[in-house]
C-alpha cells in the first residue's frame, strides 16, 4: 500500500502531451482517484487548441485542505508525466526543478513545422541523455509501442498512469484506478485498461 499522506501540500503533477492523446481523460482519472480518497484536487487544463495538434497540459494540485491555483507556479512541479518526448522537455523547462520526477512516453508526434522541414525533431536517444544530465529522476517508457501491441495506441495514457501510480508516491492504489476507470469506460474494456495499467506499473518501476 502506498503512503496515505502527501510529502508536500499542495503536491503538483503535470500531465502533458499533444491533442488527441487522451491527456484530459488521464488527468480526470487521476484526479477522481484522489478525490475518492478524500483529497482536495484542483485540475487546470489547457485544451482550447487541443484538437488541432497543439500542446496540451493538465496541472493537478493535490491537497489535504483546499483548492489551489489551476496553474502551477513556474519551477515547482513534483511529477511531470508526458505522453510525448519533446513536450516533456518543454514542460521541464517551464515547471521543472532538479528534484522533479519525469515519466515520458518515447513516441514522437511531429509538429507541423517539423513535417514541413522548417524545424528539426531531435533524436529521442539524444533527448533522453540530455534529460538525464539535467535531472536524476527520469523514466522513459515505450508506451505507444506497448499500447499498439495491446491493440489500441490510445492506451498509452493508461500505461503512463500505471507508471505514475507504480512510483508509490501518490496516496492511491490499483483498486482506486479500477473504480475510477470503471466509471468512465464500458464494462467490457475494464480488463484491457487494467492490463495496460499493470504493464505501466511494472515498466515504471524499472
Amino acid at each position: 500500500m502506498n503512503s496515505t499522506r502527501l510529502s508536500k501540500d499542495p503536491y503538483s503533477v503535470i500531465i502533458t502531451g499533444v491533442g488527441g492523446q487522451g491527456n484530459v481523460m488521464a488527468s480526470r482519472v487521476l484526479g477522481s482517484m484522489l478525490v475518492n480518497n478524500g483529497f482536495s484536487v484542483t485540475i487546470g487544463e489547457t485544451f482550447g487548441a487541443s484538437q488541432r495538434g497543439g500542446s496540451v497540459m493538465s496541472h493537478l494540485r493535490i491537497s489535504e485542505t483546499s483548492s489551489w491555483s489551476p496553474q502551477i507556479p513556474k519551477g515547482t512541479a513534483d511529477i511531470i508525466v508526458s505522453l510525448e518526448p519533446i513536450e516533456a522537455v518543454r514542460v521541464l523547462a517551464a515547471y521543472g526543478n532538479p528534484g522533479v520526477i519525469l515519466l515520458s512516453n518515447t513516441r514522437p508526434i511531429f509538429p507541423v513545422n517539423v513535417i514541413k522541414g522548417d524545424a528539426a525533431y531531435p533524436s529521442v536517444e539524444e533527448l533522453k541523455k540530455s534529460v538525464r544530465r539535467l535531472i536524476p529522476h527520469s523514466i522513459f517508457i515505450e508506451a505507444t509501442e506497448e499500447a499498439l501491441k495491446m491493440g489500441n495506441p490510445i492506451l498509452a495514457n493508461i500505461i503512463m498512469l500505471g507508471a505514475v501510480v507504480g512510483l508509490n508516491i501518490l496516496p492511491i492504489t490499483r483498486e482506486n484506478f479500477r473504480t475510477a476507470i470503471g466509471e468512465r469506460v464500458s464494462p467490457d474494456t475494464v480488463d484491457l485498461n487494467m492490463d495496460a495499467f499493470d504493464l505501466g506499473s511494472r515498466l515504471g518501476q524499472q
Binding site: G54, V89, A93, A94, V112, N113
Partner: peptide, 12 residues
Amino acid sequence: LADTMAPNRGMT
C-alpha cells in the same frame, strides 16, 4: 535544452 530540442507546435 527546450530551445534546441523542443520545436514549437503550431496549430494546424
